[in-house]
């Protein structure tokens, strides 16, 4: 068993755009006791552990390994996770 496999597990969530500016970082860390979790639970925990961005996070979507994930899907601490807020390309 490697150190990575000892709880709590660190879920790293990439941040972009205005949320990254508000948070002052491009990566939020979320500590969770289990190695995988529902997307909706990840968002709740992210809000609880990062109150400074909580109001923005609730309107965002989670991407797992470069594709949008639904609320009922499970994500792992090994996944590449990103918080996708309002985008503004074009």
């Amino acid at each position: 068993m490697t150190e990575d496999n000892i709880p709590p597990y660190v879920f790293r969530v990439l941040l972009f755009g205005p949320i990254a500016q508000t948070a002052g970082t491009t990566c939020a860390e979320v500590m969770i006791e289990q190695p995988d979790i529902l997307v909706e639970q990840l968002i709740e925990t992210l809000c609880r552990q990062n109150p400074g961005i909580a109001s923005s996070v609730r309107t965002c979507r989670i991407a797992r390994n470069h594709a949008f994930a639904q609320d009922h899907e499970r994500v792992s601490f090994r996944d590449e996770l990103a918080l996708i807020g309002m985008v503004s390309g074009g």
Binding site: G17, F68, I84, V87, S88, G89, G90
Partner: peptide
């Protein structure tokens, strides 16, 4: 395409 891009494609302008 443009409407949907502005909702779904992760690009941000600063």
């Amino acid at each position: 395409f443009i409407d949907r891009m502005k909702m779904d494609v992760p690009i941000w302008k600063h």
